[in-house]
Amino acid sequence: MTLIYQLINGLQIGSIYALVALGYSMVYGIVRLINFAHGEIIMVGAYCVWFCMSRLALPALPAVAITVIVCAVLGVSIERIAYKPLRKSARISLLITAIGVSFLLQNLAQLIFTANPRMFTNLFTGSIAIGTQEISAATVATIGVSVVLMIALSVLVNKTRIGKAMRAVSEDADAAQLMGINVNSVISFTFAIGSALAAIAAVLYCCSYSQISPTMGSMLGLKAFVAAVLGGIGSIPGAMTGGLCIGIAESLTKGYISSQLSDAVVFGILIVVLLIKPTGIFGRGDHQKV
């Protein structure tokens, strides 16, 4: 019984990781950057939806819509302002910049909203009984919304023109440019989609865990990143699988071993994956040219 409960819990947090992992994975696929600021976009999304609902007293749907737009715009602006000037410079510079942006957002949030956590009221009340097990509506909604979004994203990437352009840029940005693809707008679009997914992940996260703090994004982001690496960075099905695996592993550790060790277990998984198969479950080997 408790095992099923833990598994469902794992699926729920896992779908949130998967949504966030998609953002890391897509961005990495296109600009080869671990976007450290991605976790902070979740945090901004959480504050945004909280602000819209409890301060502006907006209904849920417009609040979520505003949050998605705010996060998408933020993601694109970060890319335009901080990453674009460095696209041709050393990878280490780009990575350091991403860490800088991440810290900047975190500390700005701390300055504006203080370090005290804010409480968020769940959008999905009630629960559904399956057998003798009660599953909260938020859990069902989280898993449902994630599944729908992932299917939509797969269609977008595989069936549409812009999806084809994204794949082309991730394959070879210079060649794509020569083929007449506007690489800049494809990159912006990727950041926008990734950030929008992070915004929805933020809303779903808040519904279940209700606490919003300036540092909430960093650990969530890191774990989602681990999920992306586990699945194979750059791969969309990989990000989804990785997210679910990490969620379940974490939930089982919390349930059966110790909740304090769950972070260590997640990073342990990361280390093992990187050592055994650095390209992850679905990743392609990248052949080094000499």
Partner: peptide, 21 residues
């Protein structure tokens, strides 16, 4: 590169969690 950065970050966090426990 990036993988090295992230794995050392992971190790750093693990060291912290171990000391904590």
């Amino acid at each position: 590169g990036d993988y090295l950065a992230i794995i050392t970050l992971g190790f750093g966090e693990i060291i912290r969690v171990i000391i904590l426990n």
